[in-house]
């Protein structure tokens, strides 16, 4: 594997909050165009790992390198976190306009993006949207950015079946590498090629995404939760 094909290379990565290590001694690499699913129980470190990979959190241990150490990391990373990252007083179109202008991108594709995520008929402020609609707007912002590395934290949370279908097809339309952290393995696994199972801040299992659900069940059985 050529070094330039590796988008993220994390070695012995650790991040703690107070005395508790949310991510500890973790090694991970993500290749160009790869679709990676991260699963694991609540508090296992999925969100922390995504936030470290997004550059929004710095590691307390180990090292992480993006795009082979090239500059301009942040402009190539897109993140859809728990918070949608939008302005509540603005409409969906206004939000897309604002971020297009901030990044110097064009505004021609905004109506297309809104119809992709099913928000083309909403002209009211985002404050009146449901949680699922806010997440769809966050996904539209991610599609607008077209990042080389897209990080999605629970993209199917608070979605109805129609929303899940729209989000799934939108994720498939993302051009670069995609990392999805989700509990909803049945929706996320078909979109991914590789999966990792995290527990207590470390990777417990790595394998094809098609086997993610059985690995997930095995962890539950081991913990006596099934």
């Amino acid at each position: 594997m050529r070094a330039m094909d590796t988008l993220v290379q994390a070695s012995n990565l650790g991040r703690r909050f107070g005395r508790r290590w949310a991510v500890a001694r973790l090694d991970l690499s993500i290749q160009r165009g790869e679709r990676l699913l991260i699963i694991g129980p609540n508090g296992c470190g999925k969100t922390t790992l995504l936030r470290v990979m997004s550059t929004l959190l710095s590691p307390h241990q180990g090292s992480i390198e993006w795009f082979g150490g090239k500059h301009g990391t942040r402009e190539n990373i897109g993140m859809m976190g728990h918070d949608p990252g939008i302005y509540e007083d603005l409409s969906a179109a206004d939000n897309l306009h604002v971020f297009a202008k901030l990044s110097g991108a064009g505004t021609e594709e905004i109506s297309g993006l809104l119809s992709t995520v099913g928000l083309d008929e909403r002209t009211d402020p985002v404050a009146r949207y449901s949680a699922g609609m806010r997440r769809r707007l966050a996904l539209a912002l991610l599609l607008q950015k077209q990042p080389q590395l897209a990080l999605l934290d629970e993209p199917f949370a608070q979605m109805d079946p129609g929303g899940i279908a729209q989000v799934s097809s939108a994720i498939q339309a993302l051009p670069g590498a995609v990392v999805i952290a989700s509990h909803q393995v049945q929706h996320a696994a078909p979109l991914c090629t590789r999966a990792i199972l995290m527990d207590q801040g470390q990777i417990r299992w790595t394998g094809p995404a098609t086997s993610a659900e059985s690995a997930w069940h095995a962890l539950h059985e081991e913990r006596g939760e099934l």
Partner: peptide, 17 residues
């Protein structure tokens, strides 16, 4: 508050502004 209540500040930092 408008930047932090819905995570917009993180989006700004990732633009990056």
């Amino acid at each position: 508050r408008i930047e932090f209540e819905a995570g917009a500040m993180e989006k700004l930092m990732l633009v990056p502004v």
